[in-house]
Simulated scan of single mutants.
Amino acid sequence: MAVPKLKALPLNKHDFEILSDFRYQIRKFERFSEEVTRQHGLTPLQYLLLLHVKGYPDRDWATVGELAERLQAQQHGVVALISRCEKLGLVERRRSSDDRRRIEIHLLKDGEKVINKLARLHRTELLSLRGRFVVPDVRAFDHE
């Protein structure tokens, strides 16, 4: 993916404060997520895998490649993560009926239960942060 060339203008103290607070709020949410998922017997990556399967647009399954993109991870690592989730009875691999070469990852009943519970907790936490996430001021950058 090509990164657009930006002409960086000098940042002032306020710009640093906004960027710092933005990263702080993201980290607080991540920390909450790490703690709550572990309390429910999952690792943060297992939770994210289930979330991305359940939340994949327009269908109830995802491929390994799609999950690797969503997780920003290598496919072989995602395959290992899927295997761990399979052993826990959370997901299963199914060969696609449309394309026999494609393997679909589907949530099982226990996976559905845990993702629904954890997603509710995450939504509540995210709503509690409403108004705290301030998008950094992009006026600090000027396209060449």
Rank of each mutant, 00 (worst) to 15 (best):
E92H: 03
E17Y: 06
L118F: 09
G111R: 05
W61Y: 15
L48R: 14
A68G: 06
G55M: 10
K87R: 15
L19R: 09
Y47L: 07
A2I: 12
I82K: 04
E125Y: 15
R23N: 12
V138R: 08
D99F: 14
L9H: 03
L121W: 06
L118A: 07
L9R: 13
L48A: 07
V64R: 08
S128M: 12
R94V: 14
D21M: 09
H40S: 11
L126T: 11
L45H: 09
F32N: 01
P10Q: 11
D137L: 06
A62Q: 03
D60G: 09
E86T: 04
A140T: 11
L127G: 02
L90R: 04
F16I: 10
L9W: 05
V78F: 02
T43Q: 06
K109L: 05
V138W: 05
V79W: 03
P10N: 10
G131N: 05
A62R: 00
K13R: 13
E35K: 11
Q72L: 11
A73V: 03
S33H: 07
A2M: 11
R101V: 10
K113L: 13
S33C: 09
M1H: 15
L49F: 03
L88P: 00
F29D: 04
Q75S: 13
L127S: 07
P10G: 06
A140M: 13
R94C: 00
L129V: 00
D58Q: 10
R23Q: 11
H14K: 10
G41N: 06
S97G: 07
R130Y: 14
Y56K: 02
L108T: 04
L9T: 05
A80G: 05
D142N: 08
A8F: 15
E92T: 06
V78R: 00
V91W: 02
S83F: 08
V114M: 05
Q25A: 04
E34M: 09
E34G: 03
V78L: 05
K7F: 14
K28L: 12
S20P: 00
P10R: 13
T43W: 10
R84H: 14
A140P: 01
R130K: 10
A62P: 00
E66G: 14
R123T: 09
G131I: 11
D99E: 13
D60W: 01
Q39F: 07
R132F: 06
E112Q: 14
D15C: 07
L9I: 09
L127E: 14
L9M: 11
A119G: 06
E69L: 04
L88F: 03
I26L: 12
R139I: 03
H143A: 08
L9E: 13
H143T: 02
